[in-house]
């Protein structure tokens, strides 16, 4: 048996010379980490792509407007110069892309609604029998359903435009108006949960603890 210099109760001294991996633990005092360089870069790139896409849309809109203008001139014999480009541009300028992608809660026709409808932690959600489908749909009795819309623009009551219904992949983080989108306590038998973001349905949803014994057998 090798390795006499490092007596270790958990190592029979037979497991060779391998560089050990890390062992870390997380508990209630753990705080979210700083975003990694890759995440910052991914987010920045996502924002840049968003901006480029909006600029492209702006250019497309301008081209379309020019065509329309030309067509109108043809129809009414010319002389009309509406600053349509400027209006569209102003509309985009009001909601110019920030460095972070924002997610908006929308209904099934794409109109932005209060974030409570998509927030499983909200009292509205819990109080109205909301159900979250892991495909990303927030469903209420009666069949109303909502989902997140990522990026783009639109205030409550308006149609969300310029974004996508596909969740960003990779390490991108996205903001919503209601803050954290992470629920905890969906596994196991603990009734409370750390952090201020316990899910609406966590307490009492599991009841295996009658023997105080968990998984082992």
């Amino acid at each position: 048996m090798a390795d006499e210099e490092q007596p270790d109760a958990a190592d029979h001294g037979k497991s060779g010379q391998r560089k050990p991996g890390r062992m870390r633990f997380q508990d209630a005092s753990t705080t979210p980490r700083e975003p990694t360089l890759a995440e910052r870069r991914a987010r920045q790139r996502a924002a840049e792509e968003e901006r480029e896409r909006l600029e492209q849309e702006e250019a497309d809109a301008a081209a379309l407007a020019r065509k329309k203008k030309i067509r109108k001139r043809v129809m009414i014999g010319g002389g009309v110069t509406v600053g349509l480009v400027g209006i569209i541009a102003a509309g985009y300028a009001l909601s110019s892309p920030s460095q972070e992608v924002t997610a908006r809660c929308t209904d099934d026709s794409g109109v932005v609604v209060n974030d409570d409808y998509c927030n499983t932690n909200s009292s509205y959600f819990a109080g109205n029998g909301g159900y979250y489908n892991p495909g990303g749909f927030f469903i209420f009795p009666g069949g109303r359903q909502y989902h997140y819309y990522y990026g783009g623009s639109g205030g409550i009551g308006q149609r969300a435009v310029g974004g996508t219904t596909t969740a960003p992949s990779g390490n991108t983080t996205v903001k919503t108006s209601s803050g954290s989108t992470i629920s905890r306590g969906g596994f196991g038998v603990k009734s409370g949960s750390s952090g201020g973001s316990s899910s609406g349905g966590d307490s009492g949803s599991s009841s295996h603890g009658s023997s105080g014994k968990s998984g082992g057998s």
């Binding site: 991996g21 989108t181 992470i182 596994f187 196991g188 899910s199």
Partner: peptide, 15 residues
Amino acid sequence: TIGLAIEDIGWDRLL
């Protein structure tokens, strides 16, 4: 490796 209680696992409904 990272150790934590299964009760502390979070689900990000957004992502």
